[in-house]
């Protein structure tokens, strides 16, 4: 067997509290670039909460408290030396509801590179915008109307714009929080295709309610229940031969 590559991100014994209430109990998980990782589980199981600890979006919730260790390339992201702003550029995020800025399509993509100083000249920025939109599979649809507002696009296009906006800053990890739950099946298929194409270049973590989607897009799946990580393994194994009864009950639709 070949030496496995070290994980891009790894969590060890992570607990998350909202005030007194514990939302995540003792979760340990590794995420790598070669595989798309899916988090599945019933509503309220903590999968989104856990996802948001990976780029410290929970910092914006005053009552949230995180214990344990989460590392990005071996560096603890909750240590005092970690710059949150840079962390969030390296660990990008796509949200459940498409949330483009009420600016032009061009400015939506260009915003991240601009604030991080990734492009000095207009021409560089143009290249970043085009390549990001191409990779987001949106270029052909919007290349003639880059000045139009991003909010004028359809829901699926908006979500791809948001993915394009996330990859424009060349992150290392992309977190997707139920990115297709507000989209129709065709738009969903496009996003799933996009996730396939982005795999290998970025470590991708996707939270989904839709088990078929998890089976389609991911190589590894983590099943969360009541704030604990019940089972984590290769997607095919989780779906065909789960070790835990709770996993089996969930994926066969017994509850959820």
């Amino acid at each position: 067997m070949s030496q496995p590559t070290p994980p891009k991100m790894s969590a060890r014994n992570v607990n998350v509290y909202y005030g007194e209430k514990q939302a995540i109990q003792n979760v340990s998980i590794d995420v790598d670039t070669d595989n798309v990782t899916a988090f599945i589980g019933p509503s309220g199981c903590g999968k989104s909460t856990f996802l948001r600890t990976l780029n410290r979006m929970n910092d914006t919730v005053a009552s949230a408290r995180v214990e344990g260790e989460i590392t990005l390339d071996g560096e603890n992201i909750y240590s005092s030396g970690m710059d949150v702003v840079q962390l969030r550029a390296r660990v990008g995020m796509v949200f459940q509801k498409p949330n483009p800025f009420p600016k032009s399509i061009y400015d939506n993509i260009a915003y991240g590179p601009r604030i991080h100083g990734l492009a000095s000249a207009k021409a560089d920025l143009d290249v970043i915008v085009e390549s990001s939109l191409r990779r987001a599979g949106l270029w052909d649809e919007v290349k003639d109307r880059l000045k139009d507002s991003g909010t004028a696009l359809s829901g699926g296009q908006q979500q791809r714009l948001c993915i394009g906006r996330a990859i424009a800053v060349e992150p290392e990890v992309i977190l997707m929080d139920e990115p297709c739950s507000a989209l129709d099946p065709i738009a969903t298929a496009k996003i799933e295709e996009l996730i396939h194409e982005l795999r290998g270049r970025y470590a991708i973590v996707i939270v989904t309610h839709n088990m078929q989607q998890a089976a389609r897009v991911s190589q590894r799946t983590a099943f969360f229940h009541l704030g604990t990580l019940v089972e984590y393994g290769s997607t095919s194994e989780i779906f065909t031969n789960p070790r835990e009864d709770r996993t089996k009950d969930y994926i066969t639709g017994r509850y959820g």
């Binding site: 914006t60 390296r90 949330n99 991240g112 604030i115």
Partner: peptide, 23 residues
């Protein structure tokens, strides 16, 4: 101002002051 806009800006690494003044 919808919180989703704040999330979007924070999510690509805008600092709090950039979130406030840009969005």
């Amino acid at each position: 101002v919808p919180p989703s806009i704040r999330d979007a800006a924070l999510g690509i690494g805008a600092s709090p002051i950039q979130v406030v003044f840009h969005h």
